[in-house]
Design a protein around this nucleic acid. Structure first.
Length: 303
DNA sequence: TCACGTCAAGCAGAT
DNA sequence: ATCTGCTTGACGTGA
């Protein structure tokens, strides 16, 4: 069991998600920004290592406008060795990496042009991970997408479109239950047809339910082929007690986290903490989870 | 230095 | 109709 947090480290003093406006696009500006982002990513990973955080989600903003038509710059070749050396660090330290394209990436959109853009965006994500030479256990997670007034048709469209994606994308893609539309059992329906792993989102499941969490989690876990996909990944958060129902917590509720650790035994998986104060809560969580046998086993397997 | 209008992309639910 | 949340405010202009 590894524990991690998404995209941004709030204490380190740099961000790997620096971007700029489309209007100010220039190759110079792009290079400057990417160099900042890659160097910050290295700093974050080093920080994570010293804090026993072996799971991290790389921001989609790493290469701004990566899949946009304005971008004619060959960033793949230009930064090839930089990506490779970051990949060496990740593999050497047995870190797990994931990415999560944002809400504009829609495989099942009714609009072909949105699907075409989404394909390019997914290809960008897979290219970053390929350049780091990370294996197929390094996942790209997306939601199923919109319902468009007919969930069954939208699920069918997802399946058809999925089959249409490049191999390099398909091998990394996992789907995640969301908080408004697609439940775990909806995801299972898709997974049964195209053998795509399901990432269990604990918080979304609480809000958008298709049955008891334990069963849902077990079914999701089964959808991962540990040989190829690695152990399952889970998104964990609790509700912000003073916010709306969909709001993520500002900082980790260790009591709730403890209940989750107990309930999820003996399954082993990697946990992404989607909590607003990022590495701060992640450090609290890993320090707390040091007593869990699954974390001990991972740390023990390192040296 | 600061205020503040706006930002590549979409959907669903609340107001 | 417009705003908000989503994994995250922060870019950039004008004063």
């Amino acid at each position: 069991m590894r524990i991690g947090y998404p995209c941004i480290n709030l204490g380190i003093g740099c961000k790997a998600a620096k971007t700029f406006r489309l209007k100010s696009y220039s190759e110079e500006r792009l290079k400057q920004t990417v160099e900042n982002n890659l160097s910050c990513l290295e700093q974050i990973l080093k920080f994570n290592l010293t804090n026993n955080l072996f799971f991290f989600r790389i921001t989609s903003d790493l290469i701004p406008f990566a899949s946009h038509t304005i971008n004619r710059f060959n960033w793949k070749d230009y930064y090839r060795s930089k990506f490779a050396s970051i990949g060496v660090f990740i593999r050497k330290n047995r870190m797990r990496i994931s990415m999560h394209p944002d809400q504009f990436t829609l495989i099942n959109s009714l609009d072909e042009t949105i699907f075409e853009r989404s394909k390019k965006e997914l290809y960008y994500h897979s290219k970053v991970l390929d350049l780091m030479e990370l294996d197929a256990s390094t996942k790209i997670q997306i939601h199923v997408g919109g319902v468009y007034g007919d969930k069954q048709k939208s699920i069918e469209r997802f399946v058809d479109r999925f089959n249409n994606l490049e191999k390099s994308v398909k091998r990394r893609l996992v789907i995640e239950n969301d908080d408004v539309s697609y439940t775990v059992s909806d995801c299972l329906q898709i997974s049964d047809q195209i053998r795509v792993p399901i990432l269990f989102d604990v918080f979304h499941h609480q809000i958008n339910n298709s049955g008891p969490a334990k069963e849902a989690f077990e079914l999701c876990a089964k959808s991962w082929d540990s040989e190829r996909d690695g152990i399952p990944m889970v998104d964990y958060s609790s509700r912000n007690p003073s916010g709306s129902q969909r709001n993520h917590a500002d900082s980790i509720d260790l009591k709730d986290f403890e209940r989750f650790l107990v309930k999820s035994r003996p399954f082993d998986f990697d946990i992404m903490l989607e909590i607003k104060d990022k590495e701060k809560s992640a450090i609290k969580a890993i320090n707390f989870a040091m007593r869990d046998i699954r974390v001990q086993e991972f740390l023990g397997s390192l040296c």
